[in-house]
Structure formats: structure tokens, C-alpha cells
Nucleic acid binder design. Structure first.
Lengths: 150, 150
DNA sequence: TTGGTGCTTGACGTTTACGTAAGCGTGAGA
DNA sequence: TCTCACGCTTACGTAAACGTCAAGCACCAA
């Protein structure tokens, strides 16, 4: 008999609430066994939760995750069905891949903002605010953020 | 005089609705000039929109984006203020970076699902469904998705 | 002057992903 | 037996990010 888990165990392990896990069940993402009323999760459920949590963090909706699971769960079908599933997976992979590029772009922006700040700090060091004076507040927003590449 | 844009121009260019752009304004993310009633956007606004759109796509909330803009917009202040801003930027960079790892993990999962399908397709090719028979539907969900690494 | 087109400001509606009680069951321990 | 701790269901609430009207100016062309 292999290891099973209670709902709170999994909730703690994944850093989510029991409410969330039950919600995923409502949405058809997991379907744990029951011991009376209580839910009993096995390895498969746990692995699914791993992907759910991961999927959420990378921006998948629960509906999308569900679709992927359903595609994975085809245990019988014709070739055309499997090919369709395969295509969907590849599509999602491509999306995630392009998302990595977006993240790189965002990181690039932020890094250039950091250097912008570093330059400002340089200037401050070279020309510190004289004693007894107060820095003025400038109105409106300053220079624009940087990168514009699509 | 440098180039300006109408709200619909920008909406089309960024693939968002005018409603969204006005919403961003409500949230203090852009503040275009006015020509009478109409909004007039300049380069700075456009650059900001670039980041907003990008930020949204990588999971930043509008509030978070706003905070970053505000930090960027410090045009005057003391060293400690700039250092705090710098720290925030670095934090966000770190988050985005770890997000890239999550994406890689998700891609890994999906890729192993693809190979799972490829194996199934292999089996199908080796042992095709005989003519005149119908594939059975199997109940419950199949094998579990794969990777479990955190 | 009428009709469009484009822009404006409300203001209420919608979706997603849960949060938050309320009220009940149930087995373990004092 | 009482009382927790833990789990359950049902159901209403909520925050974020817009969508979707409605109603109204401004200006240009026919």
C-alpha cells in the first residue's frame, strides 16, 4: 500500500489552503479517494497538485490546466486524438517559451532602471546635499522607463 | 515637437482596449496630456504602456507595476531612498528569475507528456485497432503527469 | 442640419480564484 | 462525557482587471 495524504498535509506542503484544493476538485482537477467523508490523496493527486500550483504560478488558468489534464488522460482513442493532444501540448510549450522572453525583457527593463539609480547615486556621492538644506520635491513623473523592444 | 498618439492608436498598437488604457490611468500608471477633453499620449506614456503590458503578461499586478513606476519616478530624494528603490528592483528581478525556473519546470512536464504520447502513438502503430472494432472508453483518469521536482 | 466618427465620463456587470464564515459530523484523548 | 482538532458541505463575499452599455460633446462632410 503506497503513501497517502490528508488535505491539510498537502495544503501545507504546497503552501496553499485546503479551500484551494477543494476548489480544484470542484473544477475537476483532482479527484481524491474518500474514507467516509474525508478525502484521501495518493501520489497521483500529489503530482497533479504539483502541476496545478506550477501552472498557476506561470499564468495558466484552472480551465487551461484542466484541459491539459484531460488531454493527458486519454487512455484510449484514435491516433488523430493523440495527435491533437500532442499539438496542444506543443502549443502550450511555445507559449511558455515566449513568456520566458517577456520575462527577460522585463528583467532587462528593471536592470536598466537599476543602473539609472546607480548613476543617480554616483551623482549624489559626487555632489551631496549641502548640510542644512532640504531636497526639493519635483512635480510630475520623471524620465521614462527604458526599453521599448517588442 | 515630438510624436504623439491618440488612445485608439496605442490600443491597437498594444493589442489592448481603450478601456484598459483608461483603466491604467485611473490606477495612476499613465497620465497623458489633454487637448480639450481628448487624451494625448507622448513617448513616455508609450514606453510606460510597453512595460505595463509586459508586466501584466509576466504576472505583475497593476499595483505592483505602479509601485515600480513610483520608485523609478523619484527625481529627488536622499541616498537611502534610492537604495530602497534599488533593492525593490532587485527583488523583483529575483522573482522574475525564479519564475523563469518555474516555466522551465512546466515546460519539462509538458515535454514529458509529449513523449508519453509519442510512445502511445508508437504502440498504436505497432498494434493498430482492428477493423470494425470500436475503442473502449476507460474510466477514471489515466497515469499521472510526471515531474515532481520543486 | 443631419449623420457619422471618435472621444469622453460614469456606472454597473463579469470572470477567475479563491476567502470566509456557518453549521454539522467524527474519532482521539482527558 | 466533554471537548478539541480536523474535516465536510453550502453559500455568500471579494479583489483584480477589465467588459459593456448609456449618454453626451466636438467636429467634419454631405
Amino acid at each position: 500500500m503506497s503513501k497517502t495524504y490528508t488535505i491539510t498535509e498537502l495544503a501545507e506542503e504546497f503552501g496553499i489552503t485546503t479551500r484551494a484544493i477543494r476548489f480544484y476538485e470542484d473544477k475537476g482537477l483532482v479527484s481524491p479517494a474518500r474514507q467516509g467523508q474525508a478525502r484521501i490523496y495518493d501520489h497521483r493527486d500529489k503530482v497533479r497538485l504539483t502541476f496545478i500550483v506550477r501552472g498557476r504560478r506561470v499564468g495558466l488558468t484552472l480551465a487551461e490546466i484542466r484541459e491539459l489534464f484531460d488531454l493527458y488522460d486519454i487512455t484510449d482513442g484514435r491516433e488523430v486524438q493523440y495527435r491533437a493532444a500532442r499539438r496542444k501540448f506543443e502549443e502550450r510549450i511555445a507559449i511558455l517559451d515566449s513568456q520566458k522572453n517577456e520575462i527577460d525583457a522585463a528583467i532587462g527593463d528593471l536592470q536598466s532602471w537599476v543602473s539609472h539609480i546607480d548613476e543617480t547615486l554616483e551623482r549624489l556621492r559626487a555632489n551631496p546635499t549641502p548640510e542644512g538644506t532640504t531636497p526639493n520635491r519635483v512635480i510630475g513623473y520623471g524620465v521614462a522607463p527604458v526599453s521599448e523592444t517588442n
